[in-house]
Amino acid sequence: METDVPTGLADYLSQSRVALALASAAGDNHLLLVNAPFCELTGYSPDDVVGRNCRLLQRDAPNSEARARLREFLANPRQANVRTPIINFRKDGTPFVNLLYMSRLRTMGGETRYMFASQFDVSRSQPDLLADYDAQLSATLGRLAPVAGEAGIVVEGTLMTIANSAATIAQARMMLDDVERAHNA
């Protein structure tokens, strides 16, 4: 299992206040590291998830549209990033709607080395919290670029903006209601 994450990159990700995960670009995209906000959001410790694919958070949720978008991103090396709401479950089984952002981190030679991901619970969020998250993620990506560059890694793409935060949150609440109805049936 690849564990050669450059120290500067690992330190930067672990110090971020945004929930972040870094996965290998090879094979089944196993997680290489997750930070404390990721653990707080999901309830999983690094020991629970490192070495496994992040899809373990989906459990049995259908997520057909989100999965299609993620498969398309992973299959198309020219697609710089993807952002999609996806139903995930905390370690204790509580469902939440994760606004997942993923991008590629490439070597200077163009090889995709890592998959970078950020998670945000939009299930019960307010539009101003989502706007604050977007600002934090944008700042995180802006600060990540020079840190990654020092390690010979290029941050691919830029943050996709949300046209209507209220609509995103409303969609997330509908998704969560559907999951809760299915589990209570």
Results as ranks from 00 to 15, higher is better:
22 L>D: 09
91 K>W: 06
30 H>G: 11
17 R>W: 01
65 E>S: 14
60 D>F: 00
99 L>M: 12
48 D>E: 14
104 R>H: 11
22 L>S: 05
31 L>P: 04
54 C>G: 11
32 L>C: 12
29 N>A: 13
82 V>M: 14
20 L>A: 10
74 L>V: 07
97 V>M: 03
84 T>F: 09
45 S>R: 13
73 F>S: 03
60 D>V: 00
65 E>Q: 14
44 Y>A: 07
64 S>G: 09
60 D>K: 00
45 S>N: 05
46 P>D: 10
30 H>Q: 15
76 N>E: 15
78 R>Q: 14
40 E>Y: 04
17 R>V: 00
102 M>H: 07
29 N>I: 05
88 N>C: 04
56 L>C: 00
56 L>W: 00
67 R>T: 08
83 R>M: 11
99 L>N: 11
75 A>K: 07
90 R>Q: 15
19 A>D: 01
17 R>A: 02
24 S>H: 07
19 A>K: 06
89 F>S: 02
87 I>M: 05
43 G>V: 07
100 L>V: 12
94 T>S: 10
57 L>M: 09
77 P>G: 04
21 A>T: 07
78 R>S: 13
74 L>C: 02
68 A>P: 05
58 Q>G: 00
21 A>M: 11
94 T>W: 06
70 L>C: 13
42 T>Q: 03
23 A>H: 12
53 N>K: 04
47 D>K: 14
21 A>G: 12
18 V>N: 04
20 L>S: 04
97 V>I: 15
74 L>H: 06
89 F>W: 11
68 A>Q: 14
68 A>I: 02
106 R>W: 01
66 A>C: 13
47 D>M: 13
24 S>G: 09
33 L>P: 09
82 V>I: 14
90 R>M: 10
80 A>Q: 13
106 R>F: 01
98 N>F: 09
102 M>G: 02
57 L>D: 02
